[in-house]
Amino acid sequence: MKNKETLEGREKVFITDFQDNLQSVNRDLNELERLSNLVGRPSESHPLHNSGLLSLDPVQDKTPLYSQLLQAYKWSNKLQYHAGLASSLLNQQSLKRSANQMGASAKRRPKVQPSTLVLPPQYVDDVISRIGRMFPDMTIELFRPNGTSAVLLVTLGKVLKAIVVMRSLFIDRTIVRAFNENLYAEDGKLDIWSKSNYQVFQKVTDHATTALLHYQLPQMPDVVVRSFMTWLRSFIKLFQTPCQRCGKYLQDGLPPTWRDFRTLEAFHDSCRQ
């Protein structure tokens, strides 16, 4: 009898315990349900999509993933923007110095002949002498110190002397010096490397190099040489023309060394923008 009572008693205790536990589970579930309703759906329109959810991580200090991600995103965005600008600019200038076109496939590339690089020296001589006759105040002498590549020595009035190194009819590099400066190295050869002692002509050399990059027309290299010489000829009044913008002769001790590529107007380097 007593045994039965104790058994019942234990059963009851167990049931109440079980009920309690179930209730607490139920309560917890309810709580969870309530909370989960509060959270709501993460917005789909986050700019970083799912990686944006990293921002919800509460332990920022240990894993700064989100801020790093933002930085990287900004950087790559900017890169894309600049690349776009550069590509549109480069397309305008069509700066193709080599005969190999961009679109040529790897298979075809070896077959493409750089036609403008294999012009006969006689033709180059003709073109240069024709250009020389066009400008009476400019004398152009042609040398071939090393092989077939020509080196031009351009004397412009009593203002400057320019050495123009050619590769076939392409102008490879140029250096401008004063009229009274030495053009020959100690061994008696044309000195095509050392720059002018005067700041004016160092600046003019820089601008002439810019002009080389500006005047590019791979199909008609003789036009390029002619345009470059026309541009260079505008320096005949290097010391006589005031700047077209500020009207002065000197700025930081230098005369206007920039010549506009189309209008050939004179500007100081800092006045040309």
Binding site: F179, N180, S196, L250
Partner: peptide, 15 residues
């Protein structure tokens, strides 16, 4: 120094 023709650079020198 860089100029050899006085008439060319006289205005510049004056300035």
């Amino acid at each position: 120094c860089p100029c050899v023709v006085p008439g060319d650079c006289w205005n510049l020198m004056k300035e």
